[in-house]
Design a protein around this nucleic acid. Sequence first.
DNA 1: AGTGAAAACGTGCGTAC
DNA 2: GTACGCACGTTTTCACT
Lengths: 154, 154
Amino acid sequence: MLNSRDLAILDILQRDSETPLAEVGARVHLSPSACSRRIAHLREAGYIKRNVAVIDRAKVGLPTTVFVTVSARTHSAAWTEQFRQAVAQIPEVMEVYRLTGSIDYLLRIVLPSVDDYDRVYKALVARIEMNVVCASIVMETVKSAESLPLHHAG
Amino acid sequence: MLNSRDLAILDILQRDSETPLAEVGARVHLSPSACSRRIAHLREAGYIKRNVAVIDRAKVGLPTTVFVTVSARTHSAAWTEQFRQAVAQIPEVMEVYRLTGSIDYLLRIVLPSVDDYDRVYKALVARIEMNVVCASIVMETVKSAESLPLHHAG
DNA sequence: AGTGAAAACGTGCGTAC
DNA sequence: GTACGCACGTTTTCACT
C-alpha cells in the first residue's frame, strides 16, 4: 500500500525523474538514503514501471494527431483479435481504446502531416474490415497534462 | 537537424531513459562520450524535453478513463479562453484537443472510478457553459504505445 | 521496520591525447 | 574518437530509535 509520502515521491518523479535524491528528500522531509530505498521499493512493487525521455513531437517531425472512431463489422472474437493485431502492427497508431456507446473504438494516430493519414488508413483497412465512423484532425492541443492527478487518487 | 543516428538515440531514450551510455553507444555504433555529447545537444535543442517516471495508473488507484466530446456554446474568443482556463484547473482532465468536424473538443479524463465522473462533470459545467455531446467510458485499452513512431518521422 | 550519517560504489563528464 | 581521472549522486552499511 501507498502512504501520502510515497504519493508525493511519485508525483515528483512523474514530473522529473532526474530530481536528485537530496531534493526529493527535502521536499518530502526524508533523508536521501531513505528516499533511495522507497523508490527502489516502488519500482519493485511495479508502481514505477520505468523512466522515459519526453520527446518534442513537433520537433522530430510528428506534429499531427488524428483521432479516428471505428465501429466493428461483427462483434465476433475472431474479428476482435484480428483488429487487435492490425493496430498493433501499425506504429503510427499509438493508442486504441474500446469504448462504451455506439462507437466501438477510438484510435489516436500520430503523423508527420495530415497527408500521411491516407497511408495509415489504407494500411488499416488492408489488414481488417471495419467501419471508420469518423476521422478528426487535432487543430490545437488545449491541454496536455502528462502527469497523473495523484492527489485525487483513490 | 537530426540524422538517423540521433533518431536512434531518441528512440532508445524514449523507451528507457536510464539506458547506460555504454549500451546506447553500442546500439548506435558510437563511443559513450560521443553519445553523451549528442544527448546533451538533443536536450539543449529541445528535442528531449525532460525525463519522467512512468507510473502504473491502475496501481495508484486511477484505473478509469473517460473520453468526453464537447461542443462550444458560442465560438467567441472569450468563451474559448474561459474554456481553456476551466479545463486547466481540473487535474483529472489530462488532455484537451480542439478537433475538426462537428465536435469541437475531445477531453481525456482520468479517474479512480466511473462514479467520480459526476464530480468532474459538475466541476466543469460550474466553470464554463458548454454542451457535453457524449461521455464514453474506456472498457479496455487495446493498444498503448507510449513511444513515438520515430522511424516514420518526416 | 524504518530512519539518518557516513563510507563505498558506479556512472557520467571533462580534460588530455 | 579513445583513455584517463575527477566529481557527483546513488546505494549500501551500520548504529540507533
